[in-house]
Design a protein around this nucleic acid. Structure first.
Lengths: 163, 163
DNA sequence: ATTCTTGCAAAGCCTTTGCAACTGC
DNA sequence: GCAGTTGCAAAGGCTTTGCAAGAAT
């Protein structure tokens, strides 16, 4: 995982989530399983899909049911704690809250998600939206390719293949 | 649909597809249904999903089976005649062959796909990839929001709501 | 004639949902 | 105690696939 600056936030993810739940038209409840999920998810900074989360949490003896995980992930995305990234053949989640806006390089070999920040992207988006009278809500930007590590591995392999 | 410059190509989509089929490890065949699909798809420039294509082609009395449509769409993407765009809740296809590289604004209200070309995007991608020693293969970049038309409609509605 | 493609229906995959039991507030 | 949540299993939506019949070369 690349190091991108964390963003200063005044609330913990838990607090922010409770606020979200309280703000719903019909107040929603903060349950044990939701708490476990929020704590678990924000205890590590990585990209994960629903199944990975379920497996890992089960491995650490948390009580998680598939249905509730999906329901809670949806709430977390809605609450802007998580961002959903569609990878074509997989949907992964990452921290949204407390983390700088960024985009991704996705290695097709090893699956790595490399984060990058580029100020030009944001400016460019603003320009395009203005030109097209388009009201911006969000974007998804993923560059597909082969990461440095895998490239090096390939080179080496190629060299060995020649022997 | 926005007008973006078409790109000069020396082959028709059909020719290019035949070339692709012939170049496979085990030569593949060019069938009636595939020909119909290629002709139909390249007779109009729009974004469509598998179901829309099936419905429209059936309406025009073409013989199309769901399985074959999916199989052929995959081949067309593989042959670089079509590009697949993942919209999160829908997968759409657009012409790749004979069409300039571009990205999209996707209206969440009316579903419109507005194409835009921006040279900075490409430069920026090159920079980022170089910095990260990343071998570029492709990218997907979709800006989500509300298009000009829908915005205007909203404004009007809002004004009416006040009466 | 041989080998690939088609079409059907079935299976796969991921995600959502109906409902009865349960739990937070 | 009431209203929202959970868990199960079933259903959904989209896409792929096994296989026998059919078509391309």
């Amino acid at each position: 995982m690349n190091a991108l600056p964390a963003v200063e936030v005044s609330q913990t993810p838990e607090e922010k989530f409770r606020e979200y739940l309280a703000s719903r038209p019909r107040t929603q409840r903060y349950t044990t399983q939701q708490r476990d999920m929020v704590k678990y998810i924000f205890s590590k900074h990585n990209h994960f899909d629903a199944d990975e989360l379920i497996d890992e949490m089960k491995r650490e003896s948390f009580r998680v049911s598939r249905a509730t995980v999906y329901r809670t992930l949806n709430k977390l995305v809605d609450a802007s704690l998580l961002r959903r990234i569609n990878l074509g053949d997989r949907t992964v989640y990452e921290h949204d809250y407390g983390y700088a806006q960024h985009d991704h390089l996705h290695c097709e070999q090893c699956g790595a998600m490399i984060e990058f920040e580029n100020t030009e992207v944001e400016q460019m988006i603003r320009d395009v939206c203005q030109q097209q009278h388009f009201h911006y809500i969000g974007h998804s930007f993923v560059i597909r390719g082969i990461c440095g590590n895998c490239n090096r591995a390939r080179m080496t392999k190629r060299r060995l293949d020649l022997v």
